[in-house]
């Protein structure tokens, strides 16, 4: 890693993760919730790469690849749920699917 301290890289990852978390909690549109989840996964991968680069090891990048595979699987299932939600309720508002709320 060049002259950037690791704490700043991790701070950036934390800020991005927090923004994604705010997006998931604040938005009720399922498209934006999925986008926010992508932001959070990306921030977690950034933390791994920053730490791996701090020690000059490839482990961080290997973990990022696994996170990438997980994000791809997650987004495919999430988008299938989005299509199903839109088909059943004619909306992209997740609060429409509240049958389990009781």
């Amino acid at each position: 890693m060049s002259s950037v301290p690791m704490a700043h890289g991790l701070l950036l990852a934390g800020v991005l993760f927090g923004l994604g978390l705010v997006g998931v909690v604040a938005r009720r549109n399922i498209v934006f919730m999925l986008l926010s989840i992508e932001v959070m996964l990306n921030a977690a991968g950034l933390a791994f790469v920053v730490a791996g680069s701090r020690w000059g090891q490839a482990d961080g990048q290997a973990m990022f690849l696994l996170i990438l595979a997980m994000a791809a699987a997650e987004v495919s299932v999430g988008l299938a749920l989005l299509i199903q939600l839109h088909r059943r309720f004619k909306t992209v508002d997740v609060d429409a699917a509240s049958n389990l709320q009781g």
């Binding site: 890693m1 060049s2 986008l35 992508e38 990306n42 690849l65 990438l68 791809a72 988008l79």
Partner: peptide, 26 residues
Amino acid sequence: IFFTLGAPFVAALELIIYAGAIMVLF
């Protein structure tokens, strides 16, 4: 940022898979 941190492989994958494939899926 990955590129400046000395991780060019992951930078390329981020572009190809995240910005390419997953966003196209969206």
